[in-house]
Amino acid sequence: MPETVPETVLELDDLTVRFRLRRGDLTAVNGVSFAIARGETFGLVGESGSGKSVTARAIMRLIPNPPGEIQRGRILFGGSNVLDKSDAEMRALRGRHIAMVFQEPMSALNPVFTVCEQISDALRTNLGLSRREARERVVELLSLVGIPSPQKRLDSYVHEFSGGMRQRVMLAMALSCNPGFLIADEPTTALDVTIQATILELITGMIERLGMSLLFITHNLGVVAHSCDKIGVMYASHMVELGEKREIFANPQHPYTVGLLNSIPRLDIQARHLTPIAGSVCNMMEPPSGCKFHPRCAHAMDVCRREVPKLKEVAPGHHAACHLHDQGAAA
């Protein structure tokens, strides 16, 4: 069968990000590699604090320095390394070609500008629209993201918007210039399921129409199940599992992924207690040796305490970083 190799839009190679804090160093992202093809949606999931947002910010070159620094690795966007670009080149890339929806809207929106001013700013600088054209386009965008009576809300400030409305303002801003690549960090956490479905439809439409690619960070495994093509699972700064969506849901190979899938609360039954993964989360200032999951893993072996497991292919296109998959390891 002839295979068409899809064009790779983004490739991360051994990305390592470190923060130098008063009490010592914290490696937030540790040797992470993955690739996203044109038109593809890559879902990044994992434990809270595992390094998902730092990975996203590194791609945008928005790691605060100090205390943060990219210690190692390459971030290839359209074949060239983002880390080698000048600040001016980065500004040209951001917004127009790569846009990002930040996890906490208020961290990215400016409280002293109106909603219209914030969104139209990008439209005017990137697309050269006039004030009036930009204003009209903002009304259109706000209505696309489901803000009622957009003409009447245009001149509101973001603190006069609800949590979910702020999130949608940010999304409207990110989508305003039809970026080829969108990074969406928890873009629907503040949305009810009906508006969430509307927003996901809007994004899917842009993927189909414009061949947009999407890095989708979310805790909502229901959204992942229906919106992503591939999934990467992070735990304590490492990518621990990587593969096609169906494969990961049907056949998870890393004990953390298995625990995560078992923790999902169900809609059809009301359990008295939920089952989180046993043990406490990893201390990132003094991480355990070897596999960072070993203190919580029911399968931990001696080698797990000694050696960091490498990401290995365990089935075609399916990778896991776990010593259970070493040759000859007891399963």
């Binding site: 928890e186 805790h219 995560l260 207690h273």
Partner: peptide, 13 residues
């Protein structure tokens, strides 16, 4: 809303 399902389960408990 900002928590992975495992930590979420821990907090709900």
């Amino acid at each position: 809303s900002a928590l992975d399902v495992s930590i979420q389960a821990q907090i709900l408990n």
